[in-house]
């Protein structure tokens, strides 16, 4: 493929962009369906997230009088685009390896903070007090979960780097290659604390119970999203669907990238992501109630942070 076409293709069609969006919406469909079954409900059709998007696309976006219009409308766009790019950075073991031209794990980590920042900006640009409360809660959550996430990634990178005779490797290609020859980190007891910390990061980053505090419906009425409607809200939904694909893909790459070559690799990847979504997201969100922001903050400073530090120490010492 022509080098100049590679980046737009990867970001817009596959594996980012359209493909990731379809995958993300399907994952959400599975999530809603299983959550409903666990609560003894029937649940919506699998395609419900797609129907929702189509509905939003056909509506008008209302901009509040007191909102800062360019920021208000620009924020969801930035969020969705950043996640489409991030999706192109996530490898599909055995099927797709992102070109180093696009970036590495560190770029991915930076891109992963964009949705939270975009939500904060959106919340304050909307001019609503609930948006402002959402802003401060989102900020607190981000401070709480970013630390453990970085430490977990560092632990994985160090394990790979040291295993390959160096010190640390932030290349996802190396991380995958190392696990494919030396066995997955999922089965490596040294990495288990990191895995647990990473599982706590999922609900926080994806904004689901017990950590959906910035968008808590019964407390701050969806917070930053309160004033959004129509296509602008649709862009936020796209952003969150893409984000699910990115973080689930990242989880697979970091902990269990064992997969066959070729098209089978793609299928295995999708299967792993569905499974991870159901275990890491759906079951968690139906089993707990929402925490208060102070409780969540304390939780993250206690458990995931401790686990990730322990994991890093294990990796350095073992």
């Amino acid at each position: 493929m022509l080098e100049s076409l590679y980046i737009p293709f990867a970001a817009l069609l596959f594996p980012g962009g359209l493909f990731a969006l379809a995958l993300g919406l399907t994952l959400k469909g599975f999530d809603r369906r299983l959550a409903a079954r666990l609560q003894a409900r029937v649940g919506p059709p699998l395609a419900q997230p797609i129907y929702d998007l189509v509905k939003l696309a056909r509506k008008r976006t209302m901009v509040p009088d007191i909102a800062n219009e360019p920021v208000f409308l620009g924020a969801p766009l930035v969020g969705a685009v950043s996640m489409a790019l991030a999706a192109a950075l996530v490898p599909i073991p055995g099927f797709y390896t992102p070109d180093p031209v696009l970036g590495d794990l560190l770029v991915l980590l930076y891109l992963l903070t964009v949705p939270a920042i975009v939500l904060m900006i959106a919340g304050s640009a909307s001019g609503s007090p609930f948006g402002a409360i959402g802003f401060s809660r989102e900020m607190a959550m981000m401070l709480a979960y970013e630390g453990p996430l970085v430490l977990v990634v560092a632990a994985v990178a160090m394990r790979t780097g040291m295993g390959m005779g160096g010190w640390i490797s932030f290349s996802l290609t190396d991380i995958i290659a190392y696990q494919q020859t030396h066995g997955a980190f999922l089965l490596d007891p040294v990495m288990w604390p990191a895995l647990l910390a990473f599982l706590a990061f999922y609900p926080a980053n994806l904004g689901i119970i017990p950590f959906d505090i910035p968008e808590a419906e019964t407390e701050v009425l969806e917070g930053p999203l309160l004033e959004y409607s129509g296509p602008a809200l649709g862009l936020f939904k796209i952003m969150s669907a893409l984000k699910a694909v990115v973080v689930l893909g990242l989880g697979v790459a970091l902990f269990y990238p064992i997969a066959p070559e070729g098209a089978a690799g793609l299928l295995v990847q999708v299967a792993k992501m569905v499974l991870l979504m159901l275990i890491g997201v759906t079951v968690v969100r139906v089993s707990y109630g929402r925490m208060r922001i102070d409780q969540a903050f304390r939780f993250f400073l206690k458990w995931p942070l401790a686990l990730s530090v322990i994991s890093l120490a294990f990796v350095a010492l073992v």
């Binding site: 609560q39 003894a40 119970i209 959906d212 109630g289 929402r290």
Partner: peptide
Amino acid sequence: LAHLVGFESLFMQVME
């Protein structure tokens, strides 16, 4: 109360 706490499963159970 369970619904307000965000514990939807419990809400469903009580309503059942």
